[in-house]
Design a protein around this nucleic acid. Structure first.
Lengths: 206, 206
DNA sequence: GTAGCATTCAAACGCGCGTTTTACCTACGA
DNA sequence: TCGTAGGTAAAACGCGCGTTTGAATGCTAC
């Protein structure tokens, strides 16, 4: 993994993603990261300035793509007028699922994201809110249109629950063990199906 | 806080809970913990043996009580035959809510618990499964009785989603900001109400 | 070929970590 | 009154941390 035909920066980002997912931001050291990336220790500070900044770049690399895909999927769903709640939920959930299934680190990244949630880091929250808040607003508007009887604030609460359950499901927090013969991909796909069904009913609750 | 009329052990546990919630297990140092607890640095290793063991004791102290309360609430709900899905969900969710509202550290503990989920620590998972797996089995049986048409495995998935969303909600992961004039208690209480409504509908989904 | 720049490298910096050691205090039963 | 055990105290242990330094190397343009 992280073989030589990737650049030093890319190898560091990939190794950092893996190790942050496994050990946490405080738990993974730059010595472990650079060893896994097969680069010199000083390369992190040379290319990224600091560990803090490396963490930010790990997020930026994936989140830009994720949210672009989410908005594309939403527009696609909205473009044909017969789209139902499940399709809108799919536009939100499936890009995250796809990311988690992406070879080379997507699965690790969703765990990193879950850790970031748990860290409750204010700086990161602001970063997420500033950079990706408009995505949630866009989805909120779309859901509000499909659920005209639902109070706007109530909808915010419910979307927040959906986002939480999604994070939880993608990061494989749950107690449900993957059965032998079921790949990680299949496990996550089923997880997403269950989640969409569950969330659609939850959003429609009176 | 952690004033002198608590024992050294209790002050360490309280301070550790607070700091683990805020900084994580790797992020909070024993020097910070002992300073906050106003005890000597060596007291942790004297009373608990190691940092690792201190972490375990932080969990044990709260989880025994939580699961006892959950099972009591479940029996109470089942005792009157008219109990509906919302009551069963309340038996699962409200003890966690009460714990999170407990003065002296319950609020911190639910965040510690959320961190533990995110850590994906195998030893901890086994500990939780061994010690508290029977609680989930008991709830599963109760829900299965109320939802006879729902496939058993489907129910496991959905309860897992509920547990995830609950963890997320109690730990205040969400992006929903607490409005000024709303206490943390009120915020969490509303969170629980929304969650019960949402989850009940989700569980009833066809 | 060589100057100039970007990158890599080994080594070291000071610091804070978990843990251990050793001495000291205090209370209580013999 | 003294010995002893339980608890607390300060100091130090070795280690791994993030970061910095300065020299060595590779690459590109002239």
């Amino acid at each position: 993994m992280n073989s030589q035909h990737f650049s030093t920066k890319e190898r560091i980002l990939g190794a950092a993603e893996q190790l942050f997912a496994r050990l946490g931001f405080a738990g993974a050291s730059l010595r472990q990261v650079t060893a896994a990336a097969n680069v010199n220790l000083a390369a992190v500070n040379y290319h990224f300035g600091s560990k803090e900044n490396l963490i930010n770049e790990v997020f930026r690399r994936r989140l830009d793509e994720l949210n672009t895909h989410r908005l594309q999927a939403l527009e696609e769903a909205l473009s044909h007028p017969e789209s139902d709640l499940e399709e809108l939920l799919g536009a939100f959930i499936n890009p995250a699922l796809d990311l988690s299934l992406d070879r080379d680190g997507g699965g690790a990244f969703v765990r990193v994201l879950a850790r970031a949630y748990a860290e409750h880091n204010d700086a990161l929250r602001k970063f997420l809110s500033d950079n990706y808040g408009h995505v949630m607003k866009r989805f909120h508007a779309a859901f509000a249109q499909r659920l005209p009887d639902l109070d706007k604030e109530e909808l915010y609460w419910r979307l927040d629950i959906v986002a939480g359950a999604l994070t939880y499901a993608m990061a494989d927090f749950g107690v449900i063990k993957r059965k032998s013969g079921v790949t990680e991909q299949q496990h996550r796909e089923r997880s997403a199906e269950h989640l969409i069904r569950f969330a659609a009913a939850g959003l429609r609750a009176p």
